[in-house]
């Protein structure tokens, strides 16, 4: 009974996200018509308009079909990762993305792990030493961290560790996984310094609240050791919401790293997004938008499932307090 209820909950979440994704794909497809100018002009981008190219595009993008049919054809292709050709490079959009996605994923992944590794322990320390110099010190440095523009931090890191000390390469994404990791460490650190602030503040707030809960007091009153109370009671209850807020952060790291990508000359998705926006490369924009939407959906689904696994109140259909 219980496993069936859980399974149906999981399936219903997946269906909800799938539905939202379809809705978003519709909006993304409509960009073709919403964007100022006509569809052909949008697909042409900066290329010269001639009757021949116009006819070619009309055929290629089925522009003479009714709107919904166009959408259907587009969606079918999109599911097969076929988004047409870039209007700038005339290469298939998929190839452009494939060349850059691994860089962005590794960068985001490393940055995410570093963000959590910096953010959670600092947040825990601040909560445990609430209202002391330690707490104030952590909170103050966190504010400095996230109010420093990310490219300033990046340049500083680049100068110290790349140029002065020469520990890390100063540009490019490298080839092969290990080489990529080495190349992407400095960019990831500069992203993590900016992102850790959110995690520190959230962890601190949640832990202060949890440590003040009756069930923590009651656990201590029963003589459980402080270590056990902190690890099993406070951490488990406190980290559930922290993980949940961190998931959108992961998704934003994939596309939001553009300043860092530019600083370190890394060919990444964020860089591609900005460039295709500037050159009105609509097929590329659509592909990236859909990719980002899918990433966010998958990340949120993962967060929901994690939440369900960690908190029985969700599994058993009660709202949390």
């Amino acid at each position: 009974m219980r496993t069936r209820a859980t399974a149906s909950l999981v399936v219903s979440r997946i269906l909800v996200y799938a539905g939202m994704l379809v809705l978003i794909s519709f909006v993304i497809f409509s960009l073709l018509y919403i964007t100022p100018g006509d569809a052909v002009g949008n697909l042409l981008g900066t290329r010269r308009r001639t009757p021949e190219t116009e006819e070619l595009l009309r055929r290629q993008y089925h522009l003479n079909e009714p709107f919904l049919t166009q959408y259907w054809i587009w969606l079918k292709d999109a599911v097969r990762f076929d988004f047409g050709n870039s209007s700038v490079s005339t290469l298939p959009v998929t190839d452009e993305i494939n060349a850059r996605l691994p860089n962005s994923l590794i960068l985001a992944g490393v940055a995410y792990v570093l963000t959590m590794l910096i953010g959670i322990p600092l947040g825990l320390a601040a909560a445990a030493k609430k209202s002391t110099a330690v707490d104030r010190g952590i909170v103050a440095s966190v504010i400095v961290g996230f109010s420093t523009p990310v490219f300033v931090g990046a340049v500083a890191l680049l100068y110290v560790f790349g140029v002065l000390l020469g520990w890390f390469p100063v540009f490019g994404a490298g080839t092969g996984f290990v080489d990529k990791l080495w190349h992407l460490t400095l960019p990831a650190i500069s992203l993590a310094i900016a992102g850790a602030g959110l995690i520190v503040k959230h962890t601190r707030a949640v832990m202060i609240k949890v440590l003040d809960q009756d069930y923590v007091t009651f656990a201590r009153a029963r003589g459980l050791t402080s270590r056990r109370v902190y690890l099993l009671y406070a951490l488990r209850n406190g980290l559930i919401p922290v993980i949940t807020v961190s998931v959108p952060l992961l998704a934003s790291l994939v596309t939001g790293a553009v300043l860092v990508e530019v600083t370190f000359s890394i060919p990444g998705i964020g860089d591609l997004l900005v460039r295709s926006a500037a050159s009105q490369d609509l097929p590329t924009l659509q592909a990236i938008a859909l990719l980002v939407a899918a990433l966010i959906m998958v990340a949120n689904l993962a967060a929901d499932l994690l939440y369900m696994a960690a908190d029985p109140r969700i599994r058993h259909g009660r709202s949390t307090t």
Partner: peptide
């Protein structure tokens, strides 16, 4: 704090007011 954990629960027990918040929900 370490010595307390031998007194609390073992020598003196304590029950709080609100049964709805006293037990770890997970």
């Amino acid at each position: 704090e370490r010595e307390w954990s031998h007194v609390r629960g073992r020598e003196i027990g304590f029950v709080l007011q609100d049964p709805f918040t006293m037990l770890n929900p997970v």
